[in-house]
């Protein structure tokens, strides 16, 4: 637990360091992008570090183990797995129709041919992935 706390503390310091670099070092108009990037990563890192650090003090190691086991059960639960599989299947099916309609709309709008081809490429990729994974799973099941 202590090693973890040191790591979270390090993350907080790293995040604060990046925030300061973003504000104090990259302060010219030429380095605006680097400043934004540094600021963003710094904010995210320090935020995560602070969150995990607080959590490590609030949640004891016994509770931590119980939470971990409960999470593991939730992830491996066969009903949840089936729900995830069905959700993925339905989303892929719907997205296929959405992409087809999108191509039609792009065509009617007179969009650039390359853009239409790129979107059509996505449908093709989806088809190829479906063939690949169907073949792979049919061999293993």
């Amino acid at each position: 637990m202590n090693t973890k706390r040191w790591f979270y503390g390090f993350l907080v310091l790293l995040g604060i360091g990046l925030l300061l670099v973003g504000v104090l070092v990259f302060n010219s108009s030429e380095t605006k992008m680097a400043s934004g990037l540094s600021f963003g990563i710094g904010a995210a890192t320090s935020g995560l570090g602070i969150g995990w650090l607080i959590r490590s003090f609030v949640v004891t190691s016994i509770e931590d183990e119980a939470i971990r086991k409960s999470k593991e059960i939730e992830i491996n639960d066969e009903r949840n797995t089936r729900i995830r599989e069905r959700t993925g299947y339905m989303v892929a099916r719907i997205m296929n129709y959405v992409l087809c309609v999108f191509i039609l709309i792009l065509g009617f709008m007179g969009a650039d041919r390359n853009i239409i081809l790129m979107v059509a490429g996505l449908i093709l990729l989806e088809g190829l992935l479906t063939i690949y994974f169907s073949s792979r799973y049919s061999k293993t099941m």
Binding site: I73, D77, E78, R79
Partner: peptide
């Protein structure tokens, strides 16, 4: 029961209500 079978409580509830048919293993 869920804890003993290492499944979620919702799974037990769904099986009891007949909304979900478990795998042969479960």
């Amino acid at each position: 029961l869920a804890s003993a079978l290492e499944v979620s409580r919702q799974t037990i509830g769904s099986i009891e209500n007949g909304r979900y048919n478990p795998s042969i293993l479960l």
